[in-house]
C-alpha cells in the first residue's frame, strides 16, 4: 500500500516521470479541469510513430480538451506532455494544429491564401511580413488540397468543406511531424471527406503522426490505425483492430459512467 501524501507531494513527483522519448506524443498522468471541474482525469498515453490515431468518444468526453491541453492551450491541473521527448514549448516547430472550423469567424476579412499563409507565421520572426516563398508554399498547399483555384476567394464565400480544406492546407504549410486535428470531418461533403482521407494517408506515408478527433464511429476502422477511446478518462487505447470492439464502445458510450460525471460535478460544486 502506498502511503498517503498531500497534493503538493504528488505534483512534485511528476517532474521526475520518465517519458518515452521516441513517441511523437506521450502524456503522463494528465488531469485538466475547467473551473475546478475535471474534464480529463489521469490521462496516460503514448502515441505510436507514423500512425493515424483516431480520438473517439461521446460529446463532453474531453476530446478537444485533450488536444488543447497537449498544445498548452488550456492549463493542465497536473501531469506532463512530451513531444518526441521534449516539452511542447521546445517542439512547436514540429507540431501542426487544425482547430475546429467553428472556432473562428469566417466573415473575417481574409482570402484563402491569407489564411494558409498564417501557417508559416510560426517560422517568420516578429514584425517581418511573410515573403514570396511563404506565399508560394501556401499556394502549393492549397493545390495539394485541391483548392488552388480558390486562393484569392474571400473565406466566407467558401463552402464548409472548402473552409475545412483551407484549414488543412494551413496545417500542411506548417510542415510538422505531428499533427493534431480537431474534428476535420465535421460537416464536410463527401468529396472533401475523401480528399482529407487521402491527405491523411499521404502524411502517414511521409512518416507523420496524425491525431484526429473523430465523430463518425462507422468510419473509424477504415480511417485509423490506432484508436483512443475517451470518456473523461481513457477507456481503451491501442491498435484499432484489437481495441475498437463492441465491448469497449459500449463502455465509452454506454452511459454507465454516470458516476464519473457526477463525481466531477461534486468536485466543481465543492470549489
Amino acid at each position: 500500500m502506498s502511503p498517503s501524501r498531500s497534493p503538493d507531494h504528488r505534483r512534485f513527483e511528476h517532474d521526475q516521470v520518465h517519458h518515452d522519448d521516441d513517441s511523437p506524443l506521450s502524456i503522463h498522468d494528465m488531469t485538466v479541469a475547467y473551473h475546478r471541474k475535471p474534464v480529463l482525469w489521469d490521462i496516460d498515453y503514448a502515441a505510436p510513430q507514423g500512425k493515424l490515431v483516431g480520438i473517439v468518444g461521446p460529446n463532453g468526453a474531453g476530446k478537444s480538451t485533450l488536444i488543447k491541453a497537449c498544445l498548452d492551450l488550456v492549463p493542465r491541473a497536473s501531469g506532463s506532455v512530451r513531444i518526441y521527448g521534449k516539452s511542447y514549448k521546445e517542439q512547436r516547430r514540429v507540431v501542426g494544429y487544425v482547430p475546429q472550423r467553428e472556432s473562428v469567424d469566417w466573415d473575417f476579412p481574409a482570402s484563402a491564401l491569407d489564411v494558409v499563409t498564417m501557417g508559416r507565421y510560426g517560422r517568420i520572426p516578429w514584425c517581418i511580413p511573410p515573403r514570396k516563398n511563404d506565399k508560394e508554399a501556401a499556394l502549393h498547399a492549397l493545390n495539394q488540397v485541391g483548392m488552388g483555384d480558390y486562393a484569392f476567394r474571400q473565406i466566407s464565400k467558401l463552402s464548409g468543406g472548402q473552409q475545412q480544406r483551407v484549414f488543412l492546407a494551413r496545417a500542411l504549410v506548417q510542415d510538422a511531424r505531428v499533427y493534431f486535428m480537431d474534428e476535420p470531418f465535421a460537416g464536410v461533403d463527401a468529396a472533401t471527406e475523401a480528399a482529407i482521407v487521402t491527405l491523411l494517408r499521404e502524411l502517414r506515408e511521409r512518416g507523420r503522426t496524425v491525431l484526429v478527433v473523430h465523430h463518425d464511429l462507422q468510419t473509424v476502422p477504415e480511417y485509423f490505425d490506432e484508436v483512443l477511446l475517451l470518456n473523461m478518462r481513457i477507456v481503451a487505447a491501442g491498435p484499432t483492430s484489437s481495441v475498437y470492439t463492441e465491448e469497449n464502445l459500449q463502455k465509452t458510450y454506454g452511459g454507465r459512467l454516470t458516476l464519473l460525471t457526477e463525481a466531477a460535478e461534486a468536485i466543481a460544486r465543492s470549489g
Binding site: 514549448k89 473575417f108 510560426g122 506548417q174
Partner: peptide, 22 residues
C-alpha cells in the same frame, strides 16, 4: 504596420497563434 502579421492572426484565430508560440 510592423505588428500587422501578429495582429491579423490573433484577431482571426488566437488558438492557432498560441499553438505556434505567439
Amino acid at each position: 504596420i510592423l505588428m500587422f502579421k501578429e495582429f491579423r492572426i490573433v484577431c482571426f484565430d488566437q488558438d492557432f497563434a498560441a499553438s505556434m508560440g505567439r
